[in-house]
Simulated assay, not measured.
Amino acid sequence: MNEQSSWIWDTPNAHFSRHLPDEPIGYFSPNALRSKVSAFQAGFDGLLSYAVKANPDPDVLRCLTQNGVSIFDVASPAEIEMVRAIHPEAKLHYHNPVRSAQEIAQAKLHGIASWSVDALSELDKLGDLPKGSEIAVRIKLPVAGGLYNFGEKFGAEPAQAVPLLKAVAMRGLAPAITFHPGTQCTAPSAWESYIKAAAQIAKAAEVRLLSLNVGGGFPADRAAQPVDLLGIFNRIKAAKERYFCDQNPVLVCEPGRGLVADAFALVLRVKNIRPDGALVLNDGIYGALAEWRDMPPAHSRHIAVFNSKGDERLGKPAPRIIFGPTCDSLDRLCEPLALPSDIKEEDFVSIQGTGAYSAVLTSRFNGYGCSKQIYCRALTSAPRHL
């Protein structure tokens, strides 16, 4: 979102009920982001890193930096440059385990505090590194809990990770382990399973880990029940104390979605109600709802509908097929949304928790997509329990 307003509004409702925007609008609450940063800083027993891929907006990076975040998980030279432009002294974790030789050369110019690998060939590709440089071996396990499995693309199985971790140590580099339990993971047991496996791998490799990166996967508040982040934090701490009783690696987490999603709301407008009751909104899967093509939509308690005066529609919820605005018939959500039965054309649909993998995935296909960002002191009313 690169087009901004100089105004700071109390809520999204205060803005859209006055201006009646016909384009999709992203509303950003720095206060909400500060609150989530504080929750991680107070509850997680280790270092906090931000996964830039979730939302690389400069205002987001600036807000994070101003609130004590100094470690950033980057996945490309472009993300490295984004962070360096905001925080020249930030520590960079280049934890995309697959990189080209040219990407590695560019990254070395900026200084990398930690690299990740999941194969010996990728370790070899890094070439000469200063002695003591941290190399985090990324592992994968067949554990449930996330909405989809990151292990299908990245990660070494435990049997492969042992010799890889040994190779790191033999080269005079600092061994570490990293993992990702899967996006929007709500099962604390997933983290415990990974931490237990990490301890077994380190023991088999006969190395002491400099750090244990428990990844992203921390859930945003998009389900029927509120997220229990503290429960996840406590399970991680207890698992580390149990399985790493003979060594004390530094814990690191690198949330993206879990940190930034709840600091944004997306407000869309109803363009048309089709004869069969389906809705056409002014954004869809080619825009800020791109993720909703592959994962369930947010629960209805995070979605509200307002008329042009800013009054909430309170009709009985009814399932609606949702299409985006483009000329492509594939531009539809994977599941119907339960929306008020009294919804009308030109109403506004407010969706909470849209700060991650939304604007960054907008394609501008057919000229549509969310490109405007408005600041708010708070987001629309607290999530409702329906």
Rank of each mutant, 00 (worst) to 15 (best):
N2Q: 13
Y368M: 09
D73N: 14
I139A: 08
V74W: 00
A136H: 06
V74K: 06
E335C: 04
F179Q: 05
D118S: 05
Q41R: 15
V280P: 01
D73W: 07
R384D: 00
E152K: 13
Q66H: 11
E345L: 00
A39Y: 07
L339C: 05
P97K: 03
K153L: 10
A304I: 02
G231I: 05
K372L: 01
V270Y: 05
S100T: 15
I201Q: 04
C63V: 15
I135W: 09
L212Q: 00
G182P: 08
K131Q: 11
D128R: 13
T362W: 06
G353E: 02
H93R: 03
L129C: 12
G367I: 07
A32E: 15
D347W: 00
H19I: 10
R34F: 06
S114C: 15
F323V: 01
A136N: 11
I177S: 00
W9P: 08
P249L: 01
D118E: 04
L33W: 12
A239P: 07
N67V: 00
S114H: 11
A238T: 09
I112W: 09
L210M: 07
I322N: 04
A51F: 03
A101H: 12
R18P: 00
N96E: 13
P21V: 11
G258E: 08
Q66I: 00
P317T: 04
D311M: 07
H19E: 13
N67T: 01
T178Q: 04
L279E: 10
G353A: 04
K237P: 00
R332I: 10
S371Y: 07
R332E: 12
L48T: 08
R384Q: 10
N282H: 12
L129Y: 09
T354I: 03
A263Y: 06
T178C: 09
N31T: 14
T326M: 01
N272A: 12
G367M: 09
L259K: 02
R171H: 10
E79I: 02
G256D: 11
H299G: 08
T380E: 15
K196D: 07
T178S: 08
K53P: 07
K203L: 06
L212H: 00
A359M: 11
V83M: 13
R257V: 11
L314Q: 11
A187I: 02
H385Y: 04
A136M: 15
H15A: 05
G216C: 00
V252Q: 13
E23K: 13
Y94V: 07
A156Y: 06
P175M: 05
E206K: 09
R257T: 14
L61P: 08
Y194D: 02
Q352F: 03
V69F: 01
A359I: 12
A51G: 06
N248S: 13
D45V: 14
E122T: 01
N248G: 04
I351P: 03
S17P: 10
P319D: 04
G367C: 03
